[in-house]
Amino acid sequence: MILGGRDTDLVLLDENGIRCDGRKIDEPRKIMIKAGVLKNADGSAYIEFGDNKIVVGVFGPRDVHPKHLANTDTGILRCRYHMSPFSVEERKKPAPSRREIEISKVIKEALKPAVMLEQFPRTVVDIFIEVLQADGGSRCAALAAASVALADAGIPMRDMVSACAAGKVADTIVLDVNNEEDQAGQADMPVGYMPNMEKITLIQLDGVLTPEEYKKCVETAIGGCKLVYEIQKKALTDKYFSNGGNN
């Protein structure tokens, strides 16, 4: 494997099974989620996932503009994933890139199975995701935060959608690939998962895996999703059920 880029001498996994940022193979980065961070949005959330810093605002269900997009049978979901110009090493032009447009779509489709918009015909729910600082796994972090923001907005949902990636680094399946591992590693697999319905709603893969590795990678990612789910739950509990709740 040619490791390309400037970090060719980076040790991705040492003899004790410790990764380049000091984590064990099944350990996620530090994750913090806060629900209800914006005043104007109907629902919102902020997530720090490793070095990712992402804020999500949800509006709706509300009138659809332009009108012709409205569906008389159900509400529709729209999603915009956007990176701030200062979120990455090299300044990013403010206009949306092809990558951002694709991520917007896969996040929307990961959330669609969970939201129940049949009760709101002719409306739209808008999800706006702003990546203030980007790190590896920003789409998973964005998806996890978007799910919290939707629940905060009171959009009816069959389940939360959690998210975490797994990947292959130095011939080993590891949880939650970071930026360096993504650049120099062998595979990255972001997964979105409905924990109670046990349904995978987002999965992508960059890299090469054997069938055995593939299975292990999916299982590892789902394990990560379950950890992230607990943090999502805590964010909502902290906002809605704290200060003097007595059960």
């Binding site: 070095d51 110009p85 200062f86 979120s87 990455v88 090299e90 300044r91 203030l132 600082q133």
Partner: peptide, 26 residues
Amino acid sequence: GVIPKAEGSARVHLGDTEVVTGIKVQ
């Protein structure tokens, strides 16, 4: 220093208005 990847940054609250500035130097 709220965006460590930027060369300079600040998050400002003015009442309920909230903005973030990031500075890239290249």
